[in-house]
Design a protein around this nucleic acid. Structure first.
Lengths: 419, 419
DNA sequence: CTAGCGTTGCCATGGCAACTGGTG
DNA sequence: CACCAGTTGCCATGGCAACGCTAG
């Protein structure tokens, strides 16, 4: 609103000679961001958006520090905060947000990752608590404040955009049948059939929400399936999903479920199912340990992993111990795997950075020596007794050494050899 | 003086429970540094001193930022400056210096380097301008201000400390004889002998000052040898070294020197001598391209290299062109080599840092996985169908992969193989 | 007068330690 | 109450650009 004034003032005061460049950046910033109280945006996010914008428009970007100056000169009164879990704090601009109608809202950094995964979105309406999109980001968006970029929001915006289908029933391998020796007392073969299909659908629903990264919905799914009834109903539990619950209850009453849970064969079968499902989930969340994963997603996954065990054991509070133990053990292993994979992924990214750095330094070295070689050839007569031919051989040799990603020690050996 | 107050106040206000630690650091700081106007100290120097002090006293050091707090709480009113040549600026504390009587004055950071080079010091009094130690740091201590750490000062303090001998005549290889076909007009065989021995001594003197890193003295040496007489004597040239000059003049008059300089054989011979000498100098300055060299020394060497050509051509202003050209070409090549080697050294250090970083990350990875393997073995039954044996084999395999400094790609292959 | 260079202001980012609010 | 974890103040370091001086 009143920023137009600042804008003009700024662009007049500073640019004049390179106004085209600055104005382009400026316009883009004004088009996509606005001041807003109480919200913050990670600096890196903003800067990355800017870098992408520059790349797309073939502008050469300024560095982060200068970009910071620009931002602060446009959006006055920005404060700085450092948010994130302990030891992972990131710098944020506090007092700015992406404009609600900005294309950046659907082109978040996670997009590239989600796009690489071929498998968005579109949930089948199954036994899933109906929940508003903007009511979800409750427990796992970092430390819980509005950072302006919730993974779930992003992803969901995307799913609405892409409208692609992913059929959980196709992704999730078959579960196999219960191999039961004798029916438990008071149950029929039909009940077992019901359990099988119900559990299959339950697992597909879980897979659905995981595909959509709506991790927090899992808790509700579990509670629904395991007929969770809080020992002391805390507040007005607005009868959540009566339809789903009653449908489930009609297909397999809670009593029978509990009976079946005590059966050894059922236990074994469900363990196998979980195994299959969790493997599928890992595949979905981290299809390739080496592929970069946006840190927001990593964080979300780790928080997810942290919550899993608690959710499950809580949801199953009325189920026989044996079953709880089996399933909680499985989910713990799953959580552990998620933690391990995200750690590995993180390390892989770090390692990649370091290696690229190495390459860059080698490249520098190479360049430096290339430049020098002209000179070396002049000096050849006095530096050593070698002729130009020799020097060129050396050069080739050197390049080869570089290309094979030589370690410093190999390089030392090479130098020793030469000098 | 009035800092004792600050001291007590500080140590009372802050420490109380870990007073021993703080007081130790504090006492050391107060013993070795004092506020002083108009001088600055590189922060890294100060911090390195501190680190050494901690190492020697088995105290665990605080990080640079916290150390900064400490310093500023003790020496009030420190300002910060960034000094150094363009692109090489370093942060300094402005308003503090090493106490004149502090042992740090003779134990500067360069010591470790000088100690590694086995070859200090003790100059033979040859045709070298007598110069006071504290009058030397004129042209190459960075940007010339008093940074409190002149390489030359350091080195000389050291030489006085070590009192070791290095005989330039032993380090410098033999020069060989002049192979002359016919004596130039007006010269005798004796003159040639004189030139040979004079030049040999001259070169040994050069080697001496280079060993002592007193680079700025070289100019005077050249001027003396080449009978430099400024076209317009600028100011009261207080008859510098009349003894040396007159001795040289008596052994080989300037006229004969000039005559000899026109002789092709002499030219060739002197070129060879220079070649030998410069190689020796390179050996002395940079005996091992891969060994870390303190940045102050690198900088000094580079400045030295920058000055060389100018000094020589200026000193030889009364000498025949042909000789000047030959010798200036040689010294240029020498300067170029110095530049190249210092660059290489710098890059080597950078590369080493990067590689160590890589190793560290690999180490982390290794640790992480080691921790995990206990867990993995529990999970083995469900994560995959492999038994513990298999897991252990994997672990070994993984370690091997790490040890061979695998690149990320190799590592990727390994992971692919496993997962 | 211009080009080069040291210096410095402003911004970024990151570590540590102190503070603080929620939790067993 | 102790403890944990997010937040923030203070300091470090480093890049870029603007400023001012000096030498050609």
């Amino acid at each position: 609103i009143e920023m137009a004034i600042e804008t003009l003032q700024k662009s007049d005061g500073l640019s004049t000679h390179r106004s085209s460049l600055l104005n382009s950046h400026l316009q883009w910033l004004l088009d996509n961001y606005e001041t807003a109280e109480g919200v913050s945006l990670p600096r890196s996010t903003l800067y990355n958006h800017y870098l992408r914008h520059c790349q797309e428009h073939k502008l050469d970007p300024v560095n982060a520090a200068s970009f910071g100056k620009l931002i602060r000169s446009i959006f006055m009164g920005l404060r700085t905060r450092r948010l994130g879990t302990r030891g992972n704090s990131k710098y944020h601009y506090y007092g700015i947000r992406v404009k609600p109608d900005s294309p950046l809202n659907r082109l978040q950094e996670d997009m590239q990752y989600m796009a690489m995964r071929q498998q968005p979105m579109q949930q089948k309406q199954r036994y899933k608590p109906m929940q508003k999109v903007d009511g979800v980001g409750d427990g796992f968006t970092g430390s819980g404040q509005q950072t302006g970029t919730s993974v779930e929001q992003t992803v969901i915006a995307q799913s609405q955009h892409h409208q692609q289908f992913l059929d959980a029933s196709r992704v999730l391998p078959e579960f196999g049948e219960v191999e039961i020796s004798s029916l438990p007392d008071g149950t029929t073969f039909e009940d077992i059939k019901s359990l099988q299909s119900l559990y299959r659908e339950h697992c597909e629903a879980i897979l659905d929400v995981v595909v959509n990264l709506q991790f927090s919905l899992i808790e509700k799914l579990w509670q629904t399936f395991w007929r969770y009834s809080p020992s002391a109903p805390p507040d007005g539990t607005t009868i959540t999903e009566p339809s789903n619950l009653s449908e489930i209850e009609s297909r397999l009453p809670k009593g029978k479920l509990i009976t079946l849970c005590k059966n050894e064969s059922i236990l074994k079968w469900m363990g196998n199912c979980d195994h299959v499902m969790y493997q599928a989930l890992v595949e979905i969340l981290i299809p390739d340990v080496l592929r970069p994963i946006p840190s927001a997603l990593t964080q979300a996954i780790r928080n997810f992993a942290k919550s899993l065990e608690g959710w499950l054991s809580n949801a199953m509070n009325n189920i026989p111990q044996r079953m709880i133990q089996t399933k909680v053990a499985a989910v713990s292993a799953f959580a552990q795997t998620l933690r391990r994979y995200t750690s590995l992924n993180h390390l892989a990214q770090a390692a990649r950075a370091v290696l690229q750095n190495t390459s860059q330094i080698n490249q520098m070295l190479n360049d430096l020596n290339r430049v020098d070689f002209a000179n070396v050839q002049e000096q050849a007569s006095w530096v050593c007794q070698c002729d130009d031919n020799m020097v060129q051989r050396l050069e080739t040799d050197f390049k080869m050494t570089l290309q094979q990603q030589s370690t410093l020690e190999q390089w030392a050996a090479w130098l020793d050899n030469v000098m």
